[in-house]
């Protein structure tokens, strides 16, 4: 799959990332195209989360290049990376990472406000997402008062706020019970089906099978295999 211009949305070329003497990623090359849903799987310490950090511009490779939506992340300074994350990336974490001091609505609106959008406009857009994700009734609730599934939906809403080129999810169902996990899986699948490019990092075979069209297996910082999937949903 390619994006509208036939270009890959994500392109990693010979990426190596070292932490001290050990290499978390060792010569990884990978392309993800627009509309794809890619799951990265592997045992703990295999380098999957490091891969996600590289694509999100949260960390820099020791060598090799990471190009996302035309931006060569190695050439961007800290501010450039921040602006890149703001405009191109939406991230979902295992532990939600919501701000406890802000209501669910304000947590979501925050992402737009950082781009300079006014509070009123940001809240309006956030409310639309709350409606779409089925959590409109919980907009004024604080994270500590939400269930795990609701928190992750809020996190997804925040990730979608700035219409990202790619949605990155790091073990999005890892901290959820089965039912809440399934709800989140459905949500991700729906998003992908309407064209949202998705990169998932997960241990969860069911999540990968259900949401991803391609699975990349990681072992010891290297791509050990790659397979295309027929979605079960």
């Amino acid at each position: 799959m390619t994006d509208d211009n036939g270009q890959a949305v994500v392109q990693l070329t010979a990426v190596r990332k070292e932490y001290g003497e050990s290499a978390a990623l060792d010569g990884v090359s990978l392309e993800i195209h627009a509309g794809e849903a890619v799951a990265v799987m592997g045992p703990s310490g295999s380098g999957k989360s490091t891969l996600l950090s590289m694509v999100a511009g949260l960390d820099r490779p020791t060598s090799g290049s990471v190009v996302v939506h035309g931006d060569d992340l190695g050439k961007l300074d800290e501010k450039g990376l921040a602006l890149f994350r703001r405009r191109r990336i939406g991230m979902i974490f295992q532990f939600f990472n919501l701000l406890d001091d802000l209501s669910a609505l304000d947590n979501v609106a925050l992402a737009a406000q950082l781009t300079g959008t006014s509070a009123a406009h940001a809240r309006k857009r956030a409310l639309e997402l709350f409606d779409e994700l089925g959590i409109a009734g919980r907009r004024n609730t604080y994270p500590s008062q939400l269930s795990g599934g609701e928190r992750q939906r809020v996190a997804v809403a925040r990730a979608l706020m700035n219409r990202p080129a790619i949605l990155l999810a790091d073990e999005p169902t890892g901290a959820l019970d089965t039912r809440a996990g399934e709800q989140v899986m459905d949500l991700l699948l729906d998003l992908n089906q309407i064209g949202q490019t998705l990169l998932l990092v997960t241990h969860d075979q069911q999540l990968a099978t259900r949401c991803a069209s391609r699975v990349i297996d990681f072992v010891d910082g290297q791509i050990a295999g790659e397979r295309s999937l027929e979605r079960t949903a």
Binding site: E78, L83, R86, I89, M91, A111
Partner: peptide
Amino acid sequence: MLKSIGMTP
């Protein structure tokens, strides 16, 4: 988290 959603240094 704030940095991950685009807050600059």
